[in-house]
Amino acid sequence: MSVFIDKTTLVEVQGVTGKEGSFWTKHMVDLGTKVTFGVTPGKEGQSVEGVPVYHTVARGLREHKADAAMLFVPPRFTKDAVYEALDGGIRKIVTIADGIPLHEMIQIRQAAKSCGAMVIGGNTSGVISPGQAMMGFFPYWIERVYKPGRIGVMTRSGSLTNEVTAEVVKGGFGVSSLIGIGGDSVPLTRFAEMLPAFQADPDTDAVVIIGELGGSMEEEVAEAMEAKIFTKPLVAFIGGRTAPEGKRMGHAGAIATGGTGTVAGKHKALTRAGALVASKPSLVGPLLREALHIK
């Protein structure tokens, strides 16, 4: 088992014929992901790495099945693409788009909530269960990062994920599933909303969250731990501890204002809930060992 995606998940890819879409579809297939079809309006009849292409999701679904949609679609077309997938009955969607307009993110998240769907992103690398399947773009061939194992990872960042996950592996562990929540101010799915899946996953022993300043997602994780919704060990690394208030540190969501969204507040909430918080990436491995009582 794993979280969100495994080798049995049937994935359709929207924006499959684009430069990134075709390149990463090949890698998704190479890793073992079951890609059933792709979508690009006007390109029906073509194929990308053996994946048949259709004009629309509905036309693809006449011939194939899909449990999940992977969107390689620019930000301004993302809302339409998500709604198209939802309209096709697909309830797991990943969008990597960086720069989705704020009001559209609210609309997408609302639409997903109202039909019980889970949309992951935007501004993320996607989702990967190493050794099984991925939706998005991960350098899964870098073994010191994407080693299969029993630690779940959730992250608001891309490059920092490679950095921190390498420390998980260095600590003697591997990854069960990694969920890229993304760096936007309105993540379409939040950390705490993924926790029940990690809790239920028999192949996940503990979870690492890679957070940063801004917003309240880390505090919500602490609440879920205190409410016993999540009871497995949890280790957190949170970037932006020394960032000045009012400065947006790269990501749209990475800003602390008026005393809210500070790393100090997140650290306190998580520690109180029983999580271990690493002050630097290299402490994530040792803290995992401590949390799992491994000498």
């Binding site: 992250t155 608001r156 960042s157 920092l160 970037g239 790269g250």
Partner: peptide, 16 residues
């Protein structure tokens, strides 16, 4: 640097 989260972390590490 590259990557917002990584750059922010490097920023913290330098201050530390």
């Amino acid at each position: 640097c590259a990557g917002a989260g990584l750059t922010t972390t490097v920023y913290d590490l330098i201050n530390d």
